[in-house]
Design a protein around this nucleic acid. Structure first.
Length: 479
DNA sequence: ATGTCC
């Protein structure tokens, strides 16, 4: 069985591509991106996911797909509890709730701001804890972790770290619907407690960016995004607490598999039927860790506002630093979708994929009703990031891409250039970089990633989302 | 992604 190209933007992996597929695989990609996905065997993972019990429609992959734990990163899978559908922690990933937040400013990138970029990067860098391990800006006691996991953004607000409106402009109005902190292990809580308000490492970043192209004038106007203005983008997740929650529940579910008569081609696809108590337990832990991630990005936003206020000697309010939107790309959600002409409640796993609701959806903040849900797509370090709006495509369970997607292994990337060389190269392009570890910086080089422009254009072509604005980095704070 | 192996 060979992959079949359906149209300019979709490839189909027919049932039978690997043994035991219940539905076909659909990869949203042009020729070049599809070849990359075949090369790193992520396409095989898309087919493996199609063997999950109760999967409906197709096993999907966004154009930024690459190899991941069991499921590909960039994968979307919907399972139907009424058809013994399953939940698989590998379909969400280790960084539960990881996501991106875009904050605008009313500052134009002109004479007032340009000379201050060095001071700005330094000031933000001093206020944003980062790197592997490490303490956060708002460390709490393990006993307070339950509150963070229940309240998400509002926990940070209760500690003075933000504005009331910030919750409204965060997906799920600042907190996932069904967090169960009791499903998190003590170890998970102990790891998470000191880390609230920290960036992390790897591809996580805080960037100072400039809006350098508007492609959808009306949507940009609604989001108060203007060409030439400075923005702040925060890409971070649930740190150690989500990682530990995933580890714990994978282990538990893997142990349950023997007694469940579920046959999957890869042990990393460990899963349980949604009606099994272990599913509710995992979903409760996932929502809890997801809320920690939201609170984390909120605290980081507050740190960035403080830094801007200190440098420009005006309040963050005077600088117009409102949240445009905050969206996660590692979550599973129970959602209603039209499947073969019938509305069904399904569990949509998105791992390195972003929900992309269309105009008129009740979950959107009122001002965005007419444009659809904002989708924030981080580029690789030194390359463009994008602001999109969703189109609620029935081809993708209302999902779109999440970023550039890795194209080269970390090991490979480190061989090409040292962190020091890379920093110099970026600064030659006018991009200031604050890093914590040179080695980690080298792993995140732009050449280790796919082209974010190609990715978002593919999603637009396939009708999943629409590009509103392009943002280019001028200052990068990395873990 | 991650106290990059309890």
């Amino acid at each position: 069985m060979e992959p079949r190209r359906i149209d300019d933007y979709v490839w189909e992996l027919p049932v039978g591509f690997v043994d035991g597929m219940n539905v076909p695989g659909h990869v949203f990609a042009g020729e070049a991106l599809f070849r990359k996905a075949v090369q790193d065997r992520a396409v095989e993972q898309v087919a493996n996911v199609a063997t999950l019990p109760g999967i409906v429609g197709a096993s999907l992959a966004m154009p930024d797909i690459h190899w991941g734990y069991g499921f590909p990163i960039g994968g979307v899978a919907a399972t139907d509890p009424a058809a013994h559908g399953v939940i698989s922690p590998g379909g969400v990933g280790f960084d539960i709730g990881c996501g991106v937040r875009l904050v605008r400013t009313s500052l134009p990138w002109t004479a007032e701001v340009r000379p201050k970029i060095g001071e700005l990067v330094d000031t933000v860098a001093r206020r944003v804890p980062r790197g592997v391990g490490g303490k956060g800006r708002l460390p709490i006691r393990p006993s307070e972790v339950d509150d963070v996991c229940r309240d998400g953004v509002r926990f940070a607000l209760s500690r003075g770290a933000g504005w009331e409106e910030d919750a409204e402009y965060t997906e799920d109005r600042g907190a996932l619907p069904d967090p169960r902190p009791s499903e998190l292990s003590d170890r998970a809580k102990e790891r998470g407690a000191p880390q609230l308000g920290s960036l992390g490492a790897g591809n996580h970043f805080l960037e100072i960016q400039v809006v350098d192209q508007i492609r959808d004038k009306r949507a940009a106007e609604v989001m108060d995004i203007h060409e030439g203005n400075v923005c702040v983008m925060v890409h971070s997740g649930s740190r150690g607490i989500g990682h530990q929650a995933c580890t714990d529940h994978v282990k538990k579910i893997d142990g349950l598999m023997r007694g469940l008569d579920i046959d999957v081609p890869d042990r990393q696809l460990a899963c349980v039927p949604l009606e099994h108590p272990a599913a509710e337990s995992y979903l409760g832990a996932m929502d809890a860790a997801g809320n920690f991630a939201k609170a984390n990005r909120q605290v980081l936003t507050h740190a960035a506002r403080e830094a801007f206020a200190a440098v420009f000697k005006r309040t963050a309010g005077e600088l117009g630093m409102s949240v445009v939107y905050d969206i996660s790309h590692n979550l599973a959600k129970m959602e209603r979708h039209d499947i073969d002409g019938k509305e069904r409640l399904v569990c949509v796993h998105r791992k390195g994929a972003t929900r992309a609701l269309g105009p008129g959806h009740t979950e959107l903040p009122d001002p965005y009703d007419e444009i659809g849900q904002p989708v924030v797509v981080p580029g690789s370090m030194g390359s463009a990031s994008y602001l999109l709006v969703g189109r609620a495509s029935s081809r993708s369970f209302a999902s779109t891409c999440h970023g550039a997607g890795r194209a080269m292994s970390r090991t490979q990337a480190k061989k090409r250039m040292t962190g020091e060389e890379l920093k110099r190269q970026l600064e030659d392009q006018g991009i200031l970089v604050a890093r914590s570890k040179w080695k980690l910086l080298a792993e995140e080089a732009p050449y280790a990633y796919k082209d974010s422009t190609e990715v978002v254009d593919t999603c637009e072509g396939a009708g999943l989302s629409k590009v509103v604005a392009r943002l280019r980095p001028v200052g990068v704070i990395k873990g």
